[in-house]
Design a protein around this nucleic acid. Structure first.
Length: 738
DNA sequence: GAGTTTGAAACT
DNA sequence: CAGTTTCAAACTC
């Protein structure tokens, strides 16, 4: 199923390219072609974001952040910049100076001729710079060439700097393939940015999409807009692609746009003078609020895959325009990044499917604000699904129904990207819903009053994202402008608990039976990493993190009277209720059996009262008892780690290998290096732990390896998943061999 | 929307 | 590591 579409897409990608407006554009070189506006809404290619700095990224990563964005100030004097002067800057890992305006940036990555063009739509949405600015959009073209199979990434963020700096006609940035891109992969990207005039700066980001699709940034009404479109040649089989896809997904899920916007906004507010002020109401604003964390990592990861030695190449590679105006200390829009949590998940569903979504911009859904998301389905796991919100977790177990429900839930938080193809149910509808939701409730976030959003109490902070407009927090420090503070705090917390920012729910379809054999019973084959400690809620309400995460309780839980509909502590399935919970409580199933049973009542009540209460149906078995659909309002479970995928890696690194206990930093690095190791192995099937590698969490909880998860996934789905498996990168740590 | 309940996070 | 406090989400009214 999935394969077909993917393959098709992949194969057709080139053709599409040519056909695509972008391609035409490139040929014509005329800067101003209206990009087929996929959505007025912002469509992003996640990859680009990866480059954005996020607070949460590990230090080393963080360094890269800035480099990724090019700042460009529009030069009022010059209406268009197509190719004009090109100033060249080498993007190699160095940071480029933000200060300089760029007219044109080109990346050249070697081999494969894929071209990507980023266009900033002239037409509408994009208005660079302040309102004053000439509406003329800036156009960025990128040509990316990647080696045959490898995916190459080029991320080129553009940031406009002050108008004063003005753009020179064109600045070219080249990235040496060698450095930036690792071994085989070379990416050439040429960005042409055309700007028209004045203005204060616009910030541009170039996005790279796997697919041929364009990324579009919508500019806010007045002030800014960007679009970046980068296309990448994709190859289905490659993991990298998958990763990219995931990234994209993640972005979408996370509402990348929001992040971006937020980042821009913040950045502008922080660094820019008045002209940039973004209006909250503006599209831009809405579109980009929140920043994700650690996108860089992803990028890094790619690099690593290509060539371990080359770190930071494409992604990390920092563009240094020769002179970018140097003042602005930050070129980058702060705060945009991929959420770490997401990272973990990201790889998991590497389904190539993702590409598809990217291709059609329309297909993409973005739910704003989601920090966590549920991945809807097990059976069909689209990359989208898999890669939900930053923190998100996946639940494989969910059915289509669940998906639908989830989609509905989208309002809550996470963004889902729904691919039409994948969605059996009219995807478009879902998308719409999601989008709508995104604007409305989806963005709703934290409500912190005392924590300053710098503690794990804060959902946003815990999820690794900046607080955004929808948040009702007070004295919030979880903003890009307080990046340092956020980072510091984050580090402190991590020092205390390296897993603090890890997804709380880990998928474990661990083949290996654990004591509780939870995995077996648990629908999702996922468990809360630490287990809950519920005393009064009987694990039937969202107070219970296990329940909230849509997973059953495990032996790790210290809950009392566990009635978790997703699985009892003892591991007995709800339906079956054979065993009573450790506490001696009857299993839900039993309860069902006994209609009179008060417990059951509770459960039902919970559901009824809180439709949202349960994210997904945990076990098929359970189902009858409780419906756990997330209500539209309910938030999807926060963080799940999908072990199967990169997430697995994530967990694996930390948990699995004792030696590797590096929290995020590991992960981040991991991305850089991961590819090499993981991919191959995964493909090989060695990758991991699967066989049995169990990892212990700090708590000494076991985490099942990713593979297991895959295995665990209900069979039917698997058929098409071959790609997925391949694509799923495992984190290095997971692999036993390593 | 305000107040209460709950359990994780933080603190001791 | 256990007990207590703080906190904000979840829940109730």
């Amino acid at each position: 199923m999935m394969d077909t579409p993917e393959k098709t897409r992949t194969s057709s990608s080139l053709s599409k390219f040519e056909d695509s407006p972008v391609f035409n554009y490139i040929n014509s070189l005329s800067p101003i072609k209206p990009v087929k506006s996929v959505h007025v809404t912002q469509t992003f290619n996640p990859l680009s974001f990866a480059s954005l700095p996020s607070i949460f990224t590990s230090p080393h990563v963080s360094s890269h952040k800035e480099s990724r964005f090019l700042k460009r100030s529009t030069d009022p004097s010059k209406p268009e910049l197509s190719s004009a002067d090109g100033t060249k800057a080498s993007t190699n890992e160095e940071n480029f100076d933000p200060g300089v305006s760029l007219g044109e940036v080109s990346f050249e990555l070697s081999n494969e001729p894929s071209r990507t063009a980023i266009e900033l739509p002239q037409t509408l949405p994009y208005v660079c710079g302040s309102p004053k600015c000439d509406p003329t959009p800036c156009v960025i073209e990128m040509n990316c060439v990647s080696e045959s199979t490898r995916t190459s990434l080029a991320i080129v963020p553009f940031v406009q700097e002050d108008s004063q700096k003005g753009l020179s006609d064109g600045v070219e940035i080249q990235e040496s393939s060698g450095k930036g891109l690792s071994d085989g992969v070379e990416v050439a990207a040429t960005f042409q940015i055309e700007q028209k005039r004045e203005t204060i700066g616009c910030e541009w980001e170039g996005l790279i999409s796997d697919t041929s699709d364009l990324l579009i940034f919508n500019s806010p009404n007045d002030s800014e807009a960007f679009r970046g479109v980068i296309q990448k040649s994709l190859e289905a089989g490659t993991i990298e692609l998958n990763e990219i896809n995931h990234v994209n997904e993640s972005f979408e899920d996370n509402n990348v746009t929001n992040f971006v916007s937020a980042g821009l906004t913040d950045y502008m507010e922080t660094h820019m003078s008045a002209p940039y002020s973004m209006k909250p109401g503006s599209n831009l604003h809405r579109g980009f609020r929140r920043r994700c964390l650690d996108f860089e990592v992803l990028a890094a990861r790619r690099k690593s895959l290509d060539g371990g030695s080359n770190t930071n190449s494409s992604v990390d590679s920092k563009l240094e325009p020769g002179n970018l105006g140097g003042d602005s200390s930050r070129c980058i829009v702060p705060g945009i990044g991929l959420h770490l949590n997401a990272l973990a998940i990201a790889s998991r569903d590497n389904r190539s499917t993702k590409v598809e979504t990217l291709l059609s911009g329309t297909e993409k859904l973005i739910l704003p604000c989601s920090t966590t998301s549920n991945s809807p389905t097990a059976g069909q796991e689209t990359a989208h699904e898999s890669f939900l919100a930053s923190a998100s977790t996946e639940r494989e177990t969910n059915d289509v129904e669940n998906r639908v429900k989830l989609a509905d839930d989208a309002s809550q938080a996470s963004a889902y990207v729904v691919n039409e193809e994948f969605n059996q149910n009219s995807p478009k509808k879902k998308i719409r819903r999601l989008e709508q939701a995104g604007e409305s409730e989806a963005c709703k976030r934290c409500n912190c009053k005392k924590s300053k959003c710098l503690k794990l109490y804060c959902e946003c902070f815990a999820a690794g994202v900046y607080c955004i407009e929808p948040c009702s927090c007070q004295d919030c420090f979880n903003k890009p402008i307080h990046e340092d503070t956020v980072l510091t705090t984050r580090k402190q917390i991590e020092s205390r608990n390296p897993l603090a920012f890890a997804p709380k729910v880990i998928r474990t379809s661990d083949p290996i039976p654990e004591v509780g054999e939870d995995s077996i019973t648990t629908p999702a084959s996922a468990r809360h990493k630490r287990g809950c400690n519920c005393k009064k809620s009987n694990c039937l309400k969202k107070y219970c993190e296990c329940f909230q995460g849509g997973v059953g309780c495990s032996i790790n839980c210290r809950c009392e009277g566990c009635k978790n509909a997703f699985g009892l502590k003892d591991g007995s399935a709800i339906v079956e209720a054979e065993g009573e919970p450790e506490d001696g409580e009857t299993a839900p199933s039993d309860k069902n059996a006994r209609n009179k049973n008060s417990e059951k009542t509770d459960i039902l009540n919970t559901e009824e009262q809180n439709p949202a209460a349960l994210p997904t149906t945990p076990l098929q078995l359970h189902r009858p008892l409780v419906q756990l659909p997330f209500s539209s309002k309910s938030k999807p479970p926060r963080s799940f780690i999908t072990i199967g995928s990169s997430s697995a890696l994530y967990t694996g690194n930390r948990y699995g290998k004792p030696n590797i206990i590096r929290p995020q930093s590991i992960i981040e690095k991991h991305f850089q290096s991961v590819r090499e190791d993981e991919t191959p192995e995964i493909l090989r099937g060695n990758s991991s732990p699967g066989t049995g590698i169990k990892t212990l969490s700090p708590n000494s909880k076991r985490i099942s390896p990713p593979q297991c998860e895959l295995g665990s996934i209900p069979g039917g789905a698997r058929s098409g998943r071959k790609l997925i498996l391949q694509s799923i990168p495992s984190f290095p740590s997971l692999t036993p061999n390593h």
